[in-house]
Write a protein that binds this DNA or RNA. Structure first.
Lengths: 156, 156
DNA sequence: TGGGATAACATGGGATTTTATGGGATACAA
DNA sequence: TTGTATCCCATAAAATCCCATGTTATCCCA
């Protein structure tokens, strides 16, 4: 499970350390693929990146498999997620290098913030994230009741 | 189940013993993750921390999964809980080290009080907890007067 | 039931390992 | 070659492990 928010630095070669906890989460999660790294794609929702382990994409695949082959939504998601995502392998020190286009899409420079969201995570420019957070806090206060309805032990 | 209230000390390295009963509760509760420790996040309600075992977050996850991916409320809660929580692993003696920012958020210094609340627990500065208790007591006193004035059968 | 023996717990501090990060060397492609 | 990507090693800071100790709680048997 991806938890917490961590800011690391992006070096001159475009490399950034993936937080150790995130790496642990990825290696703990079983997957059919032996790929050792993360998968990242530009968000559909704004100028930031989304990512996860390879198993997350496998889950998306399974979810899409339950739809009709030419279902419009299926095609759209395939294009937006699968086609635009990149596999970024860890180097010996647990870093990945972010391709320049993703770089620019998220407006990163110098610092990179990883935001853990459970099954997946987001990658933000610290400054952009700051702006977004303020709005979410108020909404979160109002939405708390949603969590109180959780029943223990439910789900897979 | 997290029960009772225990105060332990925070050492120079920022470590604090998690009450043995709490540790037992955590190891008894089944979870998908092999993580051995607690998960802690700043409360939305005041300057104290909330926490539980990793299974509590897994339950939150399942609850949020029932909403659309880009649902605003879902995003808000993901940010406030998942993104702001930390996984704190037990050391050999059943302690965790509290990151400095959580430290400061809860105004801890020297002593830490764990308050068991069933499925989760809270972490308070003993002094702050004292103050809240006083507040609740005062409120209770006022409420008692209110109750007297609305006793059935008493005319106004 | 008393009271010594034993185990569990909270806590301190030094030693060791992990992490994040920089930079050189090497392989690859255009 | 020239630019780009990958591998490898170095290092400082931080997190974690491990052992020691006093204290409290629990056990056990006469």
């Amino acid at each position: 499970m991806f938890l917490s928010t961590v800011t690391n630095s992006l070096d001159a070669k475009g490399r950034v350390s993936v937080p150790a906890d995130f790496r642990a989460t990825i290696s703990e999660t079983p997957s059919k693929s032996p790929f050792d790294g993360i998968v990242v794609w530009p968000s559909l929702d704004g100028n930031y990146l989304e990512g996860g382990g390879i198993s997350l994409l496998e889950d998306f695949q399974n979810s899409l498999d339950q739809r009709e082959h030419y279902d419009a939504e299926r095609s759209a998601l395939q294009y937006m997620i699968f086609a635009s995502s990149r596999q970024l392998a860890f180097d010996g020190g647990g870093r990945v290098s972010l391709p320049k286009d993703l770089h620019e899409y998220a407006g990163l420079n110098g610092k990179v913030t990883f935001v853990g969201l459970g099954r997946r995570f987001e990658i933000w420019s610290p400054k952009a994230l700051e702006d977004r957070k303020d709005g979410l806090l108020a909404l979160a206060r109002e939405s708390r009741h949603l969590l109180k309805t959780v029943k223990p032990g439910e789900g897979s």
